[in-house]
């Protein structure tokens, strides 16, 4: 059936296989075979690696080339998605910040024993000479001219004019604005007036009064506009060098007027001081 030559080749193959199996089973654990394997591995692995890299590169080129067809569209879509996500992120940050501010306002409103009305700043006087803002609450909401305007941080100003739905608020920084204040440590009194970008000044504080840098100022309530005890600012500089009997006091407000967004209008002003004796 088989020729002699075919039978010889078949026997040789069978022997080779059997020999290989026998060698691989019986020689496991021998150092010599490991050396051979290591040698072969060292010789073949780089080739295999090179081949793999070549195939991988070819694959990348292939898929990249055909992928370019959709890349532009996908890129545009991703850009749009990124823009949307960025917009959402900005909105979320704004909402978070607004939430914080509104929570502070709400907390302050709940703590206060006076009726407070929340309002949003919708406009600002562009002139460098007059400091005022427009809020979105007016007479229809119960805002009265002369009403005090505050934030949880401190005094903001007072309502100068009120229309049906909007009011003009004269800010504390305006030189035409004045508040009766008290130094919380020494209990000395003074009149705080605006000085625009330079902050605030406190007038009519005698040189004998103990006023130091860092002293806290609160409203005294004696002006009949602002409720007592509202933070007004902190002393930045107090000098007794000038002429006259009064100190030269510069105050930094707690409220950041350029970032003012929401305010509270005090709807019930404190009773003005009575002159009637006991």
């Amino acid at each position: 059936m088989f020729t002699r030559k075919t039978a010889t080749i078949f026997i040789l193959i069978v022997l080779f296989v059997v020999f290989s199996v026998v060698v691989s089973v019986t020689d496991r654990g021998r150092a010599g075979s490991r050396s051979v394997e290591t040698l072969l591995l060292s010789a073949i692995a780089p080739l295999s690696d090179a081949a793999s890299r070549a195939f991988a590169s070819m694959s990348r080129v292939w898929s990249g080339y055909f992928g370019l067809v959709n890349t532009a569209q996908e890129n545009e879509k991703l850009k749009r998605d990124l823009t949307t996500v960025r917009q959402l992120l900005i909105e979320e940050r704004e909402t978070t910040e607004e939430n914080k501010r509104l929570k502070a306002l709400l907390s302050f409103t709940e703590k206060s024993d006076r009726k407070l009305l929340a309002a949003r700043v919708v406009g600002e006087d562009p002139s460098a000479w007059f400091r005022s803002v427009v809020i979105n609450r007016g007479k229809n909401d119960g805002v009265k001219e002369g009403a005090a305007v505050v934030t949880p941080l401190g005094v903001v100003g007072r309502v100068l004019r009120a229309s049906g739905s909007y009011s003009l608020v004269l800010l504390l920084l305006d030189p035409n604005h004045a508040v009766d204040v008290r130094f919380s440590r020494s209990r000395a009194r003074g009149v705080m007036v605006g000085a625009r970008e330079r902050g605030l000044r406190v007038k009519y504080v005698l040189k004998k009064e103990d006023v130091k840098k860092g002293d806290l100022l609160v409203t005294s309530g004696l002006d009949g506009v602002f409720p007592p005890g509202i933070p007004a600012g902190v002393v930045a500089e107090a000098s007794r060098q000038g002429e006259g009997m009064f100190q030269d006091i510069t105050v930094l407000p707690f409220v950041s007027f350029d970032k003012l967004e929401e305010v509270l209008v005090v709807q019930e002003n404190p009773e003005p001081p009575s002159w009637e004796g006991p």
Binding site: V121, V122, G123, E124, D125, P126, S127, A128, V134, E197, D258
Partner: peptide, 14 residues
């Protein structure tokens, strides 16, 4: 009057 993102230093445009 409307509060815009100002692009001038200080208190924005006159």
């Amino acid at each position: 009057f409307v509060r815009l993102p100002f692009f001038l230093p200080g208190r924005g445009l006159a």
